[in-house]
Amino acid sequence: MSDEVPATAVAVLTHIVKSIVDDPEAVTVEVDDSGERTALNVRVGDGDLGRVIGRRGRTAASIRTVTRAAASKDDVEIDIEFLD
């Protein structure tokens, strides 16, 4: 595990989520490196969580795939959680 913040992954994740939601100003991405893997916790405004998760979780899965690819540029393995 790396002690560095996965800057590329955070930037990509923030950009993608802000592009999807109705209220981009309400989007926050927190880095939690207390576990085995670094976790990126995403919070969005009221009513936008369903938009980010998508039907059957497909949008969330796609966001995770792209962001993990970006994290590999920083040599970091990440998990992404979408929180209320």
Rank of each mutant, 00 (worst) to 15 (best):
residue 40 L to V: 08
residue 38 T to M: 10
residue 16 I to N: 08
residue 84 D to S: 11
residue 43 R to N: 14
residue 5 V to T: 14
residue 57 G to I: 11
residue 59 T to R: 04
residue 18 K to L: 06
residue 2 S to C: 06
residue 68 R to L: 03
residue 21 V to W: 06
residue 58 R to N: 06
residue 30 E to K: 11
residue 75 D to G: 02
residue 19 S to A: 15
residue 15 H to S: 13
residue 1 M to P: 01
residue 33 D to G: 15
residue 71 A to V: 04
residue 13 L to E: 11
residue 10 V to Q: 02
residue 7 A to R: 12
residue 53 I to R: 00
residue 39 A to D: 06
residue 33 D to P: 03
residue 75 D to E: 10
residue 82 F to H: 03
residue 7 A to W: 03
residue 39 A to Y: 03
residue 72 S to Y: 13
residue 1 M to D: 12
residue 65 T to M: 06
residue 77 E to N: 10
residue 37 R to W: 01
residue 53 I to D: 00
residue 2 S to Q: 12
residue 4 E to D: 15
residue 66 V to P: 08
residue 70 A to P: 09
residue 80 I to E: 02
residue 5 V to G: 01
residue 8 T to M: 12
residue 70 A to W: 14
residue 76 V to A: 14
residue 11 A to E: 11
residue 52 V to D: 07
residue 69 A to I: 00
residue 78 I to Y: 05
residue 71 A to Q: 13
residue 61 A to P: 07
residue 75 D to K: 12
residue 22 D to I: 01
residue 24 P to N: 07
residue 42 V to H: 03
residue 56 R to V: 06
residue 24 P to A: 07
residue 17 V to T: 07
residue 28 T to I: 10
residue 22 D to L: 10
residue 60 A to M: 01
residue 70 A to K: 13
residue 20 I to T: 04
residue 45 G to I: 10
residue 6 P to G: 09
residue 82 F to M: 01
residue 74 D to T: 03
residue 26 A to S: 12
residue 77 E to I: 06
residue 60 A to C: 01
residue 32 D to P: 09
residue 31 V to W: 07
residue 60 A to I: 02
residue 47 G to F: 03
residue 74 D to R: 09
residue 67 T to N: 08
residue 11 A to M: 05
residue 68 R to G: 06
residue 70 A to M: 13
residue 18 K to D: 03
residue 57 G to E: 07
residue 78 I to L: 04
residue 84 D to G: 11
